[in-house]
Design a protein around this nucleic acid. Structure first.
Lengths: 209, 209
DNA sequence: TTTTGAATCTAATCTAGATTCATAAATGTC
DNA sequence: GACATTTATGAATCTAGATTAGATTCAAAA
């Protein structure tokens, strides 16, 4: 997925091969991480999946930790970007609760369908060594802030039930979403089904009747 | 926590010392696991916390994996037992949605306050090697079944909104609960506050208006 | 006392991976 | 088609931790 990206219209085919391999390794790392978790992710697994020998990884990344950190940062970034994009696409004047539901949908799409990177972040955020966590803090803070805004706006508009602890409510909702990779599987239920259910839960759980 | 247990009224003080140390090691393992995660849990951390040298662990457990497996099994068991106990304590005729809310409360109590073992399970379930996971499957299946029953009963009683995918709804709720150890901290909010919010979310999220 | 077995310790050993490095292929350049 | 540079490799090396081996301590039994 998305192996090319960068340098779109500049030099014809600069270090195309190189960039491609680098992306292949990064993508492989994301996938292994999302499947096996930080503990069990060996550099050799990543290399195998990328179709390259282990030392080749060092041609592109100085260490395992740097590679993993990049996966996490990219994952967190993509998650936020996708959600922001979807929100931005909403017509002006969309009611705040509908915006929240759109964010729920977008989050689940990235998490479950679009990006191993995003899954890697949520499935491993609790297990990372402190340095990686620190490196991630800023970006994940931005994502949390996005949701904080979403709820605060809805609250201000009177769309959220009274007496709810907003922080706790927000974290509970995000927890429900973040836990989905632990149980959801495309073979036993459609993605749109999960999205619909999550939206319904959130709308009725948070909203005024 | 529960250092003695077994052999209550037989021999005066049999292998009391031994059982105590074993429990100390097990408890230390639960705590380290719940704090640092499977990846970062070293036998030496466990030994340190238990006040013993690393090899002493091997006097009680044949391997790191067996030790960790036991922590997980105990954690999953305690989680279910506590929830079952709380449910059993409810007066007969308690409405199904109130029973669900009681389960929410019980789950959060064990998870956040009572047992490092329970926290260890939920924070690491996704990272475990296949053998441990297999060993855990039966017990965690029992817990899932408990919740399935809770929801099915409520549904049958007409206490749950129509058009909700029950499996997805159940897993989303459990996800919200299981994710709490990732963010909740006794210093920035009372446990009862989180419980109240979670109950409110679940009641309105699942229930008929 | 002496003996014994449980409980621990210190000092190795062993091993899976991460990391390094000197060199081989490939690719592009003139 | 020889030269330079970029990519990738095989064959070491290094290291953190798990595991094992062999004392050592000590209380209680004999």
């Amino acid at each position: 997925m998305d192996t090319t990206s960068r340098n779109n219209m500049t030099k014809p085919v600069p270090e195309a091969k190189s960039a491609a391999t680098r992306d292949r390794i990064l993508g492989a790392a994301a996938r292994v991480l999302s499947l096996k978790g930080y503990a069990a992710t060996r550099l050799s697994d990543i290399a195998d999946l990328a179709g390259v020998r282990t030392p080749a990884v060092y041609y592109y990344f100085p260490s395992r930790e740097v590679l993993i950190t990049e996966v996490m940062v990219v994952g967190q970034l993509r998650l936020r970007e996708h959600v922001e994009t979807e929100l931005a696409a909403l017509p002006a004047g969309t009611p705040p609760m509908d915006r929240i539901c759109a964010a729920v949908k977008a989050h689940l799409q990235v998490e479950l369908d679009l990006s191993d990177f995003a899954t890697a972040v949520t499935r491993n955020s609790g297990q990372l060594p402190e340095e990686v966590r620190a490196r991630l803090r800023e970006e994940s803070g931005a994502y949390l802030a996005l949701w904080r805004d979403l709820l605060a706006t809805a609250k201000a508009a009177g769309a959220i039930r009274d007496g709810l602890d907003l922080r706790a409510a927000r974290m509970l909702v995000m927890g429900a979403l973040n836990w989905t990779p632990e149980w959801w599987n495309p073979r036993q239920g459609s993605l749109t089904g999960v999205i619909r259910t999550a939206q319904s839960l959130v709308r009725h759980g948070l909203g005024t009747p």
